[in-house]
């Protein structure tokens, strides 16, 4: 395994969080879920993934699929940090004809691998890529980030069975376990737990990490890479809104706008 520059990746995660706040300003948007996956996204793009921003269509690249497509602000931030989009574009989130669509659209940006946002479909798409890669004798990896709320989509479990049946050890799924869905606590609104046990029962290798510890995330990905037959799920315990005090664990910031004061506070907190 190559040594990871943990400090650098942590800086990138912080930069992604700043980018998210810059993109949103005082408009409504998916702050909470984007913040909760910032560290995973940074760990993948700046650590674990074989992805060269100078050659983003390389057929052997690792793929990043954001099944919880509404959190794409984190991915936009990563792509900006990688130089795949002009920084000024960050000020045109969800504007007409902007490459920064409300949910990822691959026709606008290199690095976006699939059009996601209708929840529950990303793992299936990842499986398809992995199966096709295997047919072509390639060994690239596919990383998928799935929301904990998204696990209520039945298709995720259809796909989970397929990953295990086809022994897709190149597929790694993160569960962004921030404990909140759009309308409240997952435990109250619609309990999708337990995660690890469910995936193990479905034939997966399952790990748990602190989803804000870059080191733990990368250690888990290294373990997933050693797995010879099973797909791996990494249940990442995260805090929705992580990095912005007033948004942390606050269901309102699934999609609410920050006030001007909140926005300024967020900018200060992320300095």
């Amino acid at each position: 395994m190559k040594p990871y520059d943990i400090a650098l990746i942590e800086q990138k995660a912080k930069a992604i969080r700043r980018d998210i706040v810059r993109m949103l300003k005082t408009d409504r948007g998916h702050l909470g879920g984007s913040m909760s996956i910032a560290d995973i996204t940074a760990a993948l793009y700046f650590g674990a993934m074989n992805f060269d921003p100078k050659d983003p269509h390389n057929p052997d690249r690792d793929r990043f699929i954001l099944s919880k497509g509404h959190s794409v602000l984190a991915q936009y931030g990563a792509l900006a940090e990688l130089g795949l989009l002009e920084r000024e574009v960050l000020d045109r989130l969800k504007r007409f004809a902007s490459p920064l669509q409300g949910h990822p659209d691959r026709k606008f940006l290199p690095g976006i691998e699939a059009n996601t946002g209708s929840l529950g479909q990303g793992l299936s798409v990842a499986n398809g890529m992995a199966l096709a890669g295997r047919l072509d004798g390639q060994s690239f990896r596919v990383f998928v980030i799935i929301g904990d709320g998204e696990l209520s989509e039945g298709q995720v479990w259809e796909a989970a069975m397929a990953s295990a049946h086809y022994r897709l050890n190149t597929v790694t799924a993160f569960i962004d376990n921030n404990g909140l869905q759009a309308t409240g606590k997952i435990s109250d609104r619609f309990n999708t737990m337990p995660y690890k046990e469910k995936f193990i029962a479905f034939g997966w290798n399952a790990l748990e990490v602190d989803g804000h510890s870059v080191k733990e995330i990368l250690d888990a990905v290294d373990k997933a890479k050693d797995e010879k037959t099973k797909p791996t799920v990494i249940v990442a315990h995260t805090i929705k809104g992580k990095g912005v005090s007033f948004a942390e664990n606050n269901p309102a910031f699934h999609h609410s706008a920050m006030t001007k004061e909140q926005y300024e506070l967020a900018v200060r907190e992320l300095q």
Partner: peptide, 9 residues
């Protein structure tokens, strides 16, 4: 959706 992934590859 799996077929979509295959087409993407």
């Amino acid at each position: 959706a799996t077929a979509a992934g295959m087409a993407l590859k």
